[in-house]
């Protein structure tokens, strides 16, 4: 089971791709879908690899994503 997971606020995203690029375990990819502003937000492609490190959250310029570890 994954150690953590990410939460994405799709409507805040401006599609910069920072979270996708710098996720150490490659959990994310940009979606082909649009949000209402016309940006492609990230979506989880390998959720089982998420460590909950929250690096995606630190990189996000739009406060649209964060990662968290599961309670043990």
């Amino acid at each position: 089971m994954a150690k953590g997971q990410v939460a994405i606020t799709v409507e805040r995203c401006k599609g910069c791709g920072f979270c996708v690029e710098f996720c150490p375990t490659h959990v994310l990819a940009l979606s082909s879908a649009f949000n209402s502003k016309g940006y492609h937000p990230p979506h989880v492609v390998s959720g089982e690899k998420c460590s909950g490190c929250d690096l995606c959250g630190m990189y996000c310029p739009d406060f649209a994503i964060f990662g968290a570890r599961h309670a043990r």
Partner: peptide, 30 residues
């Protein structure tokens, strides 16, 4: 400290981004 939230698996949709208390979220998007 790393920003770590102890959240249960099923509640990520309602969980709050840990930076929100430090920002004026009523002014977003920036």
């Amino acid at each position: 400290s790393e920003a770590i939230l102890d959240i249960p698996l099923d509640s990520t949709k309602t969980a709050i981004n840990p930076v929100e208390p430090y920002l004026r979220m009523d002014r977003m998007p920036h």
